[in-house]
Design a protein around this nucleic acid. Structure first.
Length: 481
RNA sequence: CGCGGGGUAGAGCAGUGGCAGCUCGUCAGGCUCAUAACCUGAAGGUCGUUGGUUCGAAUCCAACCCCCGCAACCA
């Protein structure tokens, strides 16, 4: 935490298909981090950006296949992502769309600045182009004349394009990574990133408009449009004022970026080179989440029939339970299988039996004993110190974006509450009123802490829990499944 | 020899040189305020294999075996 403002952004998903479980993971992780820091720093000091990447040849083709006007097509899918956010309680501050006019202007401004810096040049290029990858494939990469990633034959292309001199920044980027070893999480990925930087090449950043009518026009060259990645990446700073409001930009940038394993080269290298070109700081933090694997522990694929749909899961279990499992049940920064049995077990034992049940027993006892449980002055100092020191540990996990570990520690706190109540037996008829009142207020304080710290993960339930505790009303917070 | 990550209890994981741990599950007991919940205890591991370094290795080194990702809707 270097200053009071915090900016966090997901990558912009390509809108040529339905949101999948990987998007869900990234979005809810970013949302949990955003919610935590909003509670910590104040809502106005956190800015949480999500959005959709809507240009590119793939999009153009897909729209034609569906027989829709391209803008109509991207509108449809962008809306799907908005609905998806709403469904999973992803409370963004801005939904960025790259087909928006403001984005076009800002991306063009970005281009101009790179050009003024001397980092953009024009070069004739001929080679084999894979539409699936949106890039040229070298002869060496081809497998039986086909793209190794998409299994399709690349198109022969011979055109003049603009290139970005990423190689200018090779040494700079290596130095940056060396002197900021903590910038990338998890740290095991650092070597991989370093290798990618070492093998850096200049990248093609435009296409001929005649081949791709759907894109942003290159400044001073109406025959060319932006290469999709070059325009999409600029969103991260455009949304906070690049090219329009430098003061605002300085307030928020550098930010925290979340992305999936396949995106390391774009977020960690190309984008960082672009930032250097326009004279902006590098990202404050690069968080590479894991991959959600099928129940069998291998990558999801329709052909294998092990695909988990976030919409199906929501229908089956409800959004918060799916959120909980994505955030807590699978490790924050490594690949993990999505298993419904684990989801059920984990939800029942951790939320229903531990946290939910404790809340219920405390409120129930408070009611039957006629005790107020929100009197902080009645909380014993030793007890308070213990809870506060647990809170510190939990917050330090959150501050390090370790959501799953933070949740584990919150469970420990609730678990300790269950041991405490069993030991103190506040239901015993032998106890005098004051002692009972102290015990229950201790527990009330513990629960208040648990509720507050669990809010970023299960926001709706926690806001219900908070009200129940304040009003001393019994509630079954988490029904067992 | 393409690059990278991993192999620790039935499952999921933590553990960077000093008595192998946590959660879930299983079994036994206890409690009874509570959502058949909660508390206590027990069983369960040659830490992938082999060799090496060391007083001492899950941990360091070497070789090998296996799984996964990069990489086929995609993050």
């Amino acid at each position: 935490m270097n200053n009071k403002k915090l900016y966090i952004t997901t990558t912009l998903p390509y809108v040529n298909a339905e949101p999948h479980i990987g998007h869900a993971l990234e979005f809810v992780q970013a949302d949990a981090i955003s919610r935590y820091f909003k509670s910590k720093l104040g809502k106005e000091n956190v800015f949480f950006n999500v959005g959709t990447d809507e240009h590119g040849q793939k999009m153009f083709k897909k729209a034609q296949e569906e027989g829709l006007e391209i803008q109509e097509f991207v509108n449809k899918y962008a809306q799907r992502f908005k609905d998806f956010c709403k469904l999973f309680f992803v409370d963004y501050d801005f939904f960025y769309r790259t087909s928006d006019e403001n984005h076009h202007k800002a991306a063009q401004e970005f281009w101009k600045r790179c050009k003024e810096k001397g980092d953009i040049y024009k070069k004739r290029y001929s080679g084999k182009y894979c539409v699936g990858c949106e890039r040229y494939i070298t002869e060496k990469e081809l497998v039986d004349g086909k793209c190794p990633d998409h299994g399709t034959e690349p198109e022969e292309k011979d055109e003049e394009n603009y290139f970005f001199k990423l190689t200018n920044y090779k040494d700079h980027l290596l130095k940056w990574l060396d002197s900021n070893p903590e910038v990338l999480k998890p740290k095991q990925k650092r070597e991989e990133l370093k290798r990618i930087i070492e093998e850096i090449e200049d990248i093609s950043i435009s296409r001929l408009r005649e081949n791709l009518p759907w894109g942003i026009e290159v400044p001073d060259d109406p025959e060319q449009v932006f290469y999709v990645w070059f325009d999409a990446l600029t969103n991260y700073v455009n949304v906070i004022g690049f090219g329009t409001d430098e003061e605002k930009l300085n307030e928020w940038w550098p930010g925290i970026q979340l992305f999936g394993p396949d995106n390391l080269r774009f977020q960690g290298v190309i984008w960082q080179g672009m930032l250097a070109s326009v004279g902006l700081d590098h990202s404050q933090k690069l968080l590479e989440h894991g991959m959600v694997l099928g129940p069998d522990g291998t990558k999801m694929a329709k052909t294998k029939g092990n695909v988990i749909s976030p919409f199906d899961q929501e229908e089956k279990f409800g959004a918060e339970i799916v959120r909980f499992y994505l955030l807590v049940g699978i490790p924050t920064f490594s690949d993990s299988a999505y298993k419904e049995d684990d989801l059920i077990n984990m939800y029942n034992s951790r939320l229903a039996n531990n946290f939910g049940n404790l809340l219920n027993r405390v409120i129930h006892l408070a009611q039957s004993k006629g005790v107020e449980i929100n009197k902080e002055e009645l909380v014993e100092q030793d007890f308070k110190r213990k809870v506060d020191s647990m809170r510190e540990e939990i917050e330090s996990y959150y501050n390090d974006y370790e959501i799953a570990l933070a949740a584990g520690k919150i469970d420990e706190l609730a678990d300790w509450g269950n041991k405490y109540i069993t030991e103190k037996e506040p239901w015993s008829k032998e106890l005098d009123f004051d002692t009972c009142q102290n015990i229950l207020n201790n527990l009330g304080y513990l629960l208040k802490t648990v509720i507050e710290l669990y809010s970023p993960i299960v926001p709706e339930s926690c806001s219900k829990a908070k009200i129940a505790l304040e009003r001393n009303e019994k509630i079954i917070l988490f029904n067992k499944i």
